[in-house]
Amino acid sequence: MTGTEPTAASRSDDETVEEVGETVGRVIENVGEVIVGHREVVEHILTAMLGRGHILLEDVPGVGKTMLSRAIAASFDCSFKRVQFTPDLLPSDVTGASVYNQETGAFEFRPGPIFANVVLGDEINRAPPKTQSALLEAMEEQQVTVDGQTHAVPQPFTVIATQNTVERDRTYDLPMAELDRFMKKLELGYPEEKEESEMLERVVGRHPIEAVEPVATLSDLEAAREVTANVTVEKPVREYVTRLARYTREHAELGASPRASLLLLRAAQGRAVLEGREYVIPDDVQTEAEVVYPHRLRTRLDETPTGELFEETIDAVPLE
């Protein structure tokens, strides 16, 4: 699964933003055929993928988190693995382990579920910190280390972790330092009444997820990431992002980190590509900041929700 880089690199040269935008649009349409509603969330996941970020989905069970992830993975024709995090899950259950091969008489590495293009870590907060960190290391380093040997994860590599907000018992909340590694935290929310009935109508009987056909290749995604990285970010936008970060630092106990600013800009680049634009505008930044910022902020004395602080930041920081 790792042999697609050369073609991706060669294709990125002649791919334009418009073409990438179209490809992404096709994927969104495709996902929309199986997942009713949640278009914004789908867009956010795709821009995160374009900007090489990982996603934290937080919501009550049963709103379709897994289904959504699977649909996106299937649309790209890329490998998809799901790990259900439980309190007794070991790090090697995630990363894989060295196993003695009787035929060759040597240890060989058996890759765990993390070796896939899209990894869904379900209920990540139920696993102990050690297991969590195995996943988080792979997210940050794009590699796993087992028995002193490092193994690169396949590219492109995207982790979508979910968190259950209902059962807080026997869970291990992710510390701020680890939350910071997720580019975005998204909430699905319940579908609207019309959407829900439409969903039921589609799903009753045979679930359409089985019928999802890929509309883009892995190399398409690889090329799209390349194009995204080249999207222009002019000085006014960079300065705006800096001002936003500084504002949160001045007004919250814990503000946006420099990594947050970097991830925000990458997400904004993805947003620009999604809209077929070769440059980032403040609108992109604002749209992305809404999901990039709140999970990184901690307000003073926890008196106001981070969402409110975010709104305040957007309203108060001058655009130019």
């Binding site: 006014p236 609108d283 309203d315 108060a316 655009l319």
Partner: peptide, 30 residues
């Protein structure tokens, strides 16, 4: 203060001419 040009133009339901100028400026600036 924190309102983007696009959001502003949408909010006041600006004319096509105004949007055209804003678009040219957006390209020039960003």
């Amino acid at each position: 203060t924190g309102e983007t040009v696009r959001a502003y133009l949408d909010a006041i339901n600006a004319s096509g001419l105004a949007r055209r100028v804003a678009a040219i400026r957006e390209r020039a600036r960003y």
